[in-house]
Design a binder for these strands. Structure first.
Lengths: 186, 186, 186, 186
DNA sequence: CATGAATGAGTATTCATTCAT
DNA sequence: CATGAATGAATACTCATTCAT
């Protein structure tokens, strides 16, 4: 049942965060999920299928969270704040999902579908940014550069906090948001 | 000969960037280096030893580059510019080294020495930032948060450029530097 | 299944007798057992574990055979005859087991448990011999020396017969037993 | 020079006694001999050549010692005493050589020459024994059985002493000799 | 002659995957 | 459906042997 499927995904997520995809074995996944090794193959075609499902699932979770009722007509400042705190909400609520998505390099095993999702999100970010630039609310620079900075800053913040065993509270998230907005505001 | 040693390190670096440590096999390393598989073990005790040597070597290269004649008495703005462009110089001159260091998660195989180097660099960054804050030149916020943002923004920029096959020119680096300075200036 | 486990042990026994522990490879063991190489590791932790299991198993088989209903109250002459013919029975019924146990040097791979069994058997032999000496039935000499002679003679007999492709019949065993008793009788 | 050749043989002997032929590596032999690994191949065609040379050399040393001025016309009792104490002399003077020759199983690597030497010694022993039997001085039994007993007793004595860390003194050797003579006397 | 760096076949062991139960 | 025993290809690593110096 879907129960086992979820258990497998949850176990795999933990292990992929701890040791990476190539450093995790299928028997380990099975044991942590509390199922037989063969059972994994009733639910997934291969180890790659598990990691891609996980990638897509969490990427979509994050995207959905950011996009749900996004203030499409608000000012860029407002939009940025929404973007930032929704990402923060995801990072806080799903620390494993976030660590998996953003603290690991997936290049060697993502399939075409997963790559397409990633591209779609990128497109959206660029469009949103370009619109804000046209309205003169965001600094006039290559949108790629700005996105890199914003996303990088967000990830860097979470990573650094994790490495230093520092917990980010509401205030820290707000401060960081203000800092990063300064980086891209017009 | 040091020749083979270098060839092994260069080959391993490429492969670790492409597929990560666990995704790279020793025979692959040997083949790309143009040496026999056994030869690797005349130069390194294990696969782990290779990755740690690579990590330490490149981390030190980057550190040396940032610290050589660092303008210790200059204003924070000047210092930040120096930091940024020196890191950029490294990222441009050693794209593989940078990708290896910053685009992969090393937690599962770094040894104590390698971790110590990482910690030392972090200390330095925090000290530098705190001093600038005391002089009122940098925004008064948790140094951890600021470092996370700055380093993250730098890495995110390089990563995004890489993913979009975008080459960062002088102007882009300068623009990015100005953006990120805005994020942390007082 | 215990079936495969037994097949592995039987194959390993043959090979260890032929080529010794270090001269035998795991793939050879697997092939002769008619199982995949990986299967060996579902039943044994390592090649060492196989050899120790074999050693302990056969040592205990031999010991059990000697000790079952041993005529503890009989005269030494009777006891010696029992000891000798029981060992002979084992050597005849389990020629591979005997060759493995006594015709090879195990020092470099026996674990603590295996060594303990060996020591226990030695203790028993010495006690038995000393008692007979106190009763004046066995020559008054260092028990170590006598045991060395008796066990050595037994092993030497089997070895020599093996090397000369000579089959030991009932009569030969009896003759040999009388000879060796003469060596230790009071 | 022959110096290195001897050093290699001495080192190999030690290692073969400790870990057996298959458990000893050529680099180990080279290191213990204080020579380069390649040097071994200037003096010996292969690892097998080393072990066979060692086997032949020590077997001949032992044989020469036993046969030099052997009391060919003495009584069997005298001859046996000579045989025993000459073997004992060898075992005491060359403990490594003895341990190598008699405490290890050589079947898997001895070449034709080495096997021939072994056969020659056996022939001699049988002849000597048969003659003594014809003179009525030795028990009338299969010479194979008697040789197995005598040689086995000798080896077993040395082995047991070694395992129990017991040093055999003059008296012990003499006692043992009397015991074993009793086993085969007419 | 002596060396030791280099090698590739070989070693013990692991692992993704299959399939009989 | 679920399992876990079985597998053989793959993995990290070793070793007897060679050969350029």
């Amino acid at each position: 049942m879907g129960d086992k499927r979820e258990a497998i995904l949850a176990a795999a997520l933990e292990l992929f965060v701890e040791r990476g995809f190539h450093g995790t074995t299928v028997p380990e996944m099975a044991e942590r999920a509390g199922v037989g090794a063969g059972t994994i193959y009733r639910h997934f075609a291969s180890k790659e299928a598990v990691v891609n499902e996980l990638y897509r699932g969490h990427k979509q979770l994050l995207t959905a969270r950011v996009l749900r009722d996004f203030p499409v007509d608000a000012a860029a400042r407002e939009q940025f704040k929404a973007l930032w705190h929704r990402m923060a909400g995801y990072a806080v609520d799903e620390p494993l999902g976030f660590a998996f998505l953003e603290l690991h390099n997936h290049r060697s095993y993502l399939d075409a579908d997963s790559l397409a999702i990633e591209a779609r999100i990128r497109e959206f970010g660029i469009g949103f940014l370009a619109a804000a630039q046209r309205r003169g609310e965001v600094r006039d620079a290559d949108p790629m550069v700005l996105i890199g900075i914003v996303m990088g800053a967000f990830i860097g913040l979470v990573r650094f906090a994790g490495e230093c065993k520092l917990t980010l509270d509401e205030a820290a998230w707000r401060t960081a948001e203000q800092c990063v907005w300064e980086a891209i505001r017009a």
